[in-house]
């Protein structure tokens, strides 16, 4: 009997965590209990920044993390966070397939095996005041948490501002930040209506979480157990992508129900954002070199 500890970053009611719980049950059922997975949610075993290395070093055989956290390590991991490159579930899945071989190769070099990915709902813009064109973003304090969001803010003429997640309510209430880009999930879960008023469903990008496993730990399983894990992973991926779509509608509705003005960006705003997206896609492809070119080519085909 093998027991795997699985650190995950998000809380129990998060749809990613719930999908993982089902995955764990699935694995136990498919292996008749010879492999059990104990999920440690909400960073209770390892916190988000430590999860990848914990799995790589075999401190935990399996874990979940946001892929784009690794984009400073290698731009390839940032492909799902290039604004307006893939902005629907279908194109996002296509981009995932285009980038998957290279991503798997990069992970394999670290002794990691990719099991499956699940996207977050499309990222939209949250603000305290009306935004009808790119000009309205000008001068707004815009949350930036990595190079890509910083660049986005700069290109929009906004003021990149660093705010930690836990500090968001205070930062919005006291005016240290005036706009951010994130999913309807994060907005609803953090009760964004307590501190801002507008949500623009800009569908900027669909960042993904991935579940990775330590290759040595995986290879130590019997052939049947390995097959069971892969089957459960495939099922979790399908289930997760569907759950994400359901989540988008449900959480957008939560935003509406709680008095946030939810709108599709005006054409002027949409066009402005598209221009920024083109610049950033070109910049990303350049930074990612040959890998980037290959991914873009596979995606465009």
């Amino acid at each position: 009997e093998t027991k795997w500890d699985m650190p995950t970053p998000y809380g129990d009611s998060n749809f990613h965590t719930q999908n993982i719980m089902t995955f764990a049950e699935d694995v136990a059922a498919k292996t008749n209990g010879s492999l059990s997975i104990q999920v440690h949610s909400a960073g209770s075993l390892f916190k988000h920044p430590e999860i990848k290395n914990a799995v790589r070093k075999g401190l935990a055989p399996i874990g979940e993390l946001l892929i784009s956290r690794l984009s400073n390590e290698d731009p390839v991991f940032g492909v799902d966070s290039v604004p307006f490159l893939a902005n629907s579930y279908d194109s996002s899945f296509k981009l995932y397939q285009a980038s998957k071989p290279i991503m798997e190769e990069k992970l394999e070099a670290q002794g990691l095996k990719l099991l499956y990915t699940v996207p977050w709902p499309p990222q939209g813009i949250y603000t305290k005041k009306d935004v009808n064109s790119i000009d309205d973003l000008k001068g707004l304090k815009f949350r930036a948490y990595n190079t890509s969001t910083e660049r986005l803010a700069q290109l929009a003429g906004a003021v990149p501002t660093q705010v930690e997640v836990a500090d968001l309510p205070t930062a919005f209430s006291t005016g240290r930040v005036e706009a951010m880009i994130t999913s309807p999930s994060t907005g609803a879960d953090s009760k964004a209506w307590d501190y801002l008023d507008h949500y623009y469903d800009a569908q900027a990008w669909l960042p993904k979480n991935m579940v990775i496993v330590n290759a040595d730990a995986f290879n130590a399983l019997s052939a049947e157990e390995q097959a069971a894990v892969m089957e459960a992973a495939a099922a979790a991926e399908t289930r997760g992508w569907e759950a994400s779509k359901v989540e988008t509608d449900a959480k957008t509705k939560v935003l509406v129900d709680n008095g946030i003005t939810v709108a599709v960006p005006s054409e002027a705003l949409q066009n402005g954002l598209k221009e920024i997206g083109d610049v950033m896609t070109a910049e990303w492809a350049e930074s990612a070199g040959e890998d980037g070119a290959a991914i873009v080519k596979a995606f465009m085909d």
Partner: peptide
């Protein structure tokens, strides 16, 4: 408020941090 532990609890349980404060 502010309180580190309420932030930790709010993040783990998806409760509004401003309400908790």
């Amino acid at each position: 408020p502010p309180s580190i532990i309420l932030i930790v609890y709010g993040a783990a349980t998806e409760q509004s941090i401003s309400r908790l404060f």
